[in-house]
Design a binder for these strands. Structure first.
Lengths: 249, 249
DNA sequence: CGCGATTTGTGCACGCCTTCACAAGCGCCT
DNA sequence: AGGCGCTTGTGAAGGCGTGCACAAATCGCG
């Protein structure tokens, strides 16, 4: 590894290990590696081989090694990777060393569940504010947080230092909420509403559409069915095996 | 377009428009096109240009045209695409003409919300059975469905003709549930549990991990912050604009 | 009927990502 | 100390996906 930490900050004394620019595909897999590593750490493993970690994360071992090499991580040849060290490295890269504050807008059916979802708290995030436009929901307490009216969003974002917003409103309200989030200073949005958001440059949007995932599965069902129905079709056994397609680009 | 509907079933008289093998990337975008088309249809549009539809779906128009050309779809040069026809084509390809039956396992926090999520019903899916292992939850009625014990899963899958299962259990229980689903005959699984599932060939798995999406956003936050902090950093304005990264491979 | 405006469908080139295969490095055992 | 086995890190090749740019096709109008 010749060029880890390529110094784009010339005079910096190495205090901040300047930011490597990782391929998007790699970034999307890092959280999965992190989860697998936490599992391994709980089971008492000190080191793990690329083969082992790859299996735990559901990817090819060559891919895993290349991913890790991108972030300049040191494994030890003949031994493997130090689990604790790798956890720290990945958490640092992902910016999870600081527990990030998240605002959630829309506490309807889905939003309510997200507000109570353990997985966020246990993986580096704190939902610090809930908002809704419906007066009937404002005031309700969910998981220790009081739902506030969306008009208070702007102030809360500033006061709590919120950089990430989650939209769990109906599609019709999503763009308006996104605009308010951006105006308040939020620079990353996770959108559960089934619609395209338009945001200014510098704001990142990721979209999760639950129905789309089912529709993709439906396509494969349809394909499998039409294969088995074909005269010469060899049935579903022609499909490649054990494909674990992770979501997220 | 010379080779639409390449007849892999030689003697078939065209009754079944033999299955084109679309690129995965295209498949993942079809549901988004479909959603945009439904919106357009509601607004009374009869035809739509590739430019217009691309904007509504948040993609490049060239990409959209290439995607649609893959499924042998007919647009009219100088005019655009027939909205109703395109809806039918995409719904057929995705296998949404038949409302697919879905089983949902795990009605905890997240599962409860999924069971009540309108977006499934309105886009071609019927959740027909709910299961949980916790006796305290069995018997509860959610959205008109009674939660059954997971032991009844196998019978229900057969009786109701269920081909798609959704796992919304804790990570520890997910692999066991997946095994039972597969044993019962389910061939597609949507997994919300944060773990890797291992399934036999011929079974498709898609994974949605809500925390992972946030972690990817967190990375970009971290990156943006480190850029603005840099001596020569030109701030967040260097990021490419309005990037709408859709989730799903 | 012919022409211009418009829009689709696609050949092509480029870049990203994946995968293979192997050299380089590390630790352990004798 | 030396050799052997194991594992990482990476060069190179191949495949896939994207986006440009343009030819082909269709409609409307004079």
């Amino acid at each position: 590894m010749s060029q880890q930490r390529q110094g784009n900050a010339p005079g910096n004394a190495g205090a901040v290990p300047a930011f490597p620019d990782l391929p998007e595909a790699t970034i999307a897999r890092l959280p999965e590696y992190l989860r697998a590593l936490h599992n391994l750490a709980e089971n008492g493993s000190d080191t793990i081989s690329s083969e082992g970690l790859a299996a735990a994360a559901g990817v090819n071992s060559a891919k895993l090694r290349k991913d890790l090499s991108h972030l300049g991580s040191y494994g030890t040849r003949g031994v493997g990777y130090d689990v604790a060290l790798l956890v720290d490295q990945i958490e640092y890269i992902l910016g999870l060393d600081q527990r990030r504050a998240v605002a959630l807008v829309g506490v309807g059916n889905l939003g309510h569940a997200l507000a109570g979802y353990d997985g966020f708290a246990s993986r580096g995030f704190r939902i610090v504010a809930l908002f809704d436009a419906d007066p009937a929901l404002v005031g309700e307490t969910i998981n220790g947080l009081v739902v506030r009216h969306i008009d208070e969003l702007s102030r809360a974002v500033v006061e709590e230092g919120i950089a990430i917003g989650v939209i769990a409103t109906p599609a019709g309200a999503a763009q308006g909420v996104a605009d308010e989030l951006v105006a308040a200073g939020v620079t990353s949005i996770l959108n559960f509403a089934p619609c395209v958001l338009s945001v200014p440059a510098g704001v990142d949007v990721r979209k999760v559409d639950l129905a789309i995932e089912l529709q993709i599965l439906s396509f494969h069902e349809h394909r499998k069915a039409s294969l088995t129905a074909l005269p010469g079709g060899r049935g579903a056994s022609t499909v490649e095996g054990a494909n674990q397609e992770a979501v997220g680009s």
